[in-house]
């Protein structure tokens, strides 16, 4: 793998060029609430020591709300109108979505979600954005009690999902690893900003990062859930769970959505694709009024099972990156790693 050196000043220049060329550069906001499209290089936050933001950058690939199509009444029929962002636009392919400074617990999200968005139906909304995305990853020096990336097969230095990968060497310089072909092609026009890399210095920095001890064995959870589907552990969590969607909406890989029609004005309607979450009672309620997941315990079980079993069974991937956003932000302090660890303990007792 090729490796270069880029100074912070030059990284700024690179971002300035991207912004000027009307590419969408997405970075974490200063208050670590979420991610935003950068309009100026002063807004750049590339902090290897920072806590993951409350919300992930997934909304730039899988929008929290977006129109699928518009419809207009035309005498006895309806005219369907494609939304502008998907309609053939010659320049759109060239407008990259550059995710700047994605930690190893954020970078794999696009790849993980791409499985579900390309399984039986190819989701053009997600794919169209995923294709023009470039993920600039960032080695992570942050660690708190809510982090658990090492328990889901990642670690603070993993390059999974990154096209380019930054490693902070000192106050002024980053090592920039060119991870994918997409990344290689992307950096070509900016190669003048980079100098020869020093892989030895980089590995010294990376080697110093302490890996967190694993909190649970995910394979064990996967085996345990089906034969223990009615276990009381889920009801116990469900008892205090509020049933808000904070965990799902903050999650970098939760991808459920709802489809609703709404009016845009008196003559026109639109069909919208909106974020939805399995923790809502409304998520599974049938037209008859019957709800197969009628308690919060059952809904919480779905969350665990989908992340550590169903997604594994179907796509061979864990639907979790261990970022800990759901636990850090939970209004009632439910910590998913603790719950899964408890499941591990229960499974070991049998």
């Amino acid at each position: 793998m090729e490796e270069k050196l880029i100074s912070k000043v030059n990284l700024k220049m690179l971002v300035a060029d991207l912004i000027k060329a009307n590419h969408i550069v997405v970075g974490q906001d200063e208050k670590a609430v979420g991610w935003k499209r950068l309009s100026h290089t002063d807004e750049i936050v590339v902090n290897s020591n920072g806590v993951p933001s409350n919300l992930s950058y997934k909304e730039f690939l899988f929008a929290k709300t977006e129109p699928i199509f518009y419809f207009r009444n035309n005498k006895d029929n309806y005219d369907l109108i494609e939304p502008a962002n998907v309609a053939a636009s010659p320049n759109l392919d060239e407008q990259k979505i550059v995710i700047l400074g994605a930690k190893p617990c954020d970078a794999p999200s696009i790849e993980i979600m791409s499985h579900v968005f390309n399984w039986d139906y190819k989701d053009k909304f997600f794919n169209e954005k995923a294709e023009r995305s470039i993920v600039i990853g960032l080695a992570c020096h942050y660690q708190d009690e809510f982090c658990f990336c090492t328990s889901v097969g990642l670690n603070p230095t993993s390059e999974a999902g990154s096209d380019l990968f930054l490693v902070p060497l000192d106050d002024k310089n980053f090592a920039i690893k060119i991870v994918s072909d997409k990344g290689k092609e992307f950096v070509q026009p900016f190669i003048q900003y980079m100098s020869e890399g020093n892989p030895k210095a980089t590995s010294e920095v990376l080697d110093k990062i302490k890996l967190q001890e694993r909190k649970f064995e995910q394979a064990k959870v996967r085996e345990w859930i089906a034969p223990n589907f009615e276990h009381k552990i889920f009801d116990k969590v469900g008892e205090t769970c509020l049933g808000c969607g904070q965990c799902a909406f903050a999650c970098p890989v939760c991808h459920c959505f709802d489809i609703v029609d709404e009016e845009c004005n008196y003559t026109c309607g639109r069909r919208m694709k909106n974020w939805d979450a399995c923790q809502f009672g409304l998520f599974t309620i049938h037209g008859s009024g019957h709800n197969p997941r009628d308690t919060q315990g059952k809904r919480y079980r779905q969350r665990i099972a989908h992340k550590f079993k169903y997604y594994q069974d179907k796509f061979g991937k864990t639907l979790c990156t261990g970022c800990g956003r759901c636990s850090r932000g939970c209004p009632v302090g439910i910590d998913i790693a603790q719950v899964v660890r408890e499941i591990n303990l229960v499974a070991n007792q049998v």
Binding site: K64, C244, G245, Q246, F249, N274, W275
Partner: peptide, 11 residues
């Protein structure tokens, strides 16, 4: 910034 998670209502 609202994501319609309804955490405000649930809490």
């Amino acid at each position: 910034r609202c994501v319609k998670c309804y955490a405000c209502r649930q809490a």
